[in-house]
Nucleic acid binder design. Structure first.
Lengths: 159, 159
DNA sequence: CCGAGCCCGTTCAAATTTGAACGGCATGGA
DNA sequence: TCCATGCCGTTCAAATTTGAACGGGCTCGG
């Protein structure tokens, strides 16, 4: 505990580049989705996850975990999206206390319309700016970082 | 514009790893700072920037830009931190309408107490999980991504 | 001198996020 | 059977964030 192992210049550069980049990317995507389709990035992600799930439905808690979101935050957003007709709630058959969030046809249609612009933006600001080699390294390295963080958070119930 | 250039599997993997990792890291740091020192990550960053600035002071708008934050959001947070005594406001001498946010002694002391734990966490969750080679690639690649985003946002006044 | 336009930081209302607490339901051991 | 415990999704109040609008001061062209 006595001595802090400070970051070297090289380490500091990595760190100083990571957060701002992530913030900028997030901001950019949010803005694009909002302008084009009136969706927040979170809402878009919700649609993506539900669309990919079997039967287009997923349980609230599981969805929250996948999205790395708080349960209450998800409740709120699903509420909003239900109002917009992108999603609907349905009781879960096999677990009486569970609730399924299910994507509607309108939700799928919205997603289809939103996807091209979103993907294009992702390419433009991130993917196409990196070389395949860089992408490979980033995928491997950050993948490891992510897995550790997920693993470590296993024990905790939720937020 | 007919055809969307979708992401390949390899590209998709990069993308699917990036946002969750950033989210998890951000969450983790927020939590650690909050628990240890009652600071949000934004507040910590504000202290870092002010501490590094000449005279420990910076103009609101410039600070907001550096932090990639909205002006109104910064006004709010500086207000909070002023209440806590970490920061104070001071009129800007050379530009009558400007205001300087200045770190206080208490702010510096808080930062000093907060830094070791923060750095340790950054190491633990990101830096030490990556090899030096990975860090080099990430710094270069994401640095380019960041610079492009900043450049592109030059024209816009603010948020 | 005057007014248009700009930058500054703030204000405001609305939207969102957060975390703690709650009620419903299920499970397992006493 | 009965209660402790745990998970589920929701609710609630408080904190924060967002974006538009505002008032003040400055500068430049008329």
């Amino acid at each position: 505990m006595g001595h802090t192992k400070w970051l070297t210049d090289e380490e500091m550069r990595t760190w100083m580049v990571f957060i701002p980049t992530a913030t900028l990317i997030s901001r950019e995507l949010d803005q694009q989705l909002k302008e084009d389709m009136g969706l927040s990035h979170l809402q878009y992600e919700i649609l993506i996850h539900l669309n990919a799930a079997e039967h287009g439905a997923m349980r609230m808690t599981e969805l929250a975990e996948r999205l790395i979101n708080s349960k209450s935050g998800l409740t709120y957003q699903i509420g909003q999206m239900e109002k917009s007709g992108l999603v609907k709630r349905r009781p879960c058959e096999w677990s009486k206390s569970g609730i399924l969030a299910e994507i509607t046809d309108e939700g799928r249609a919205t997603l289809e319309r939103a996807a091209p612009g979103h993907v294009e933006k992702v390419r433009e600001i991130l993917i196409d700016v990196l070389t395949p080699e860089e992408r490979a390294v980033i995928t491997a390295g950050l993948g490891r970082v992510r897995d550790r963080l997920i693993e470590r958070n296993q024990g905790e119930t939720c937020w």
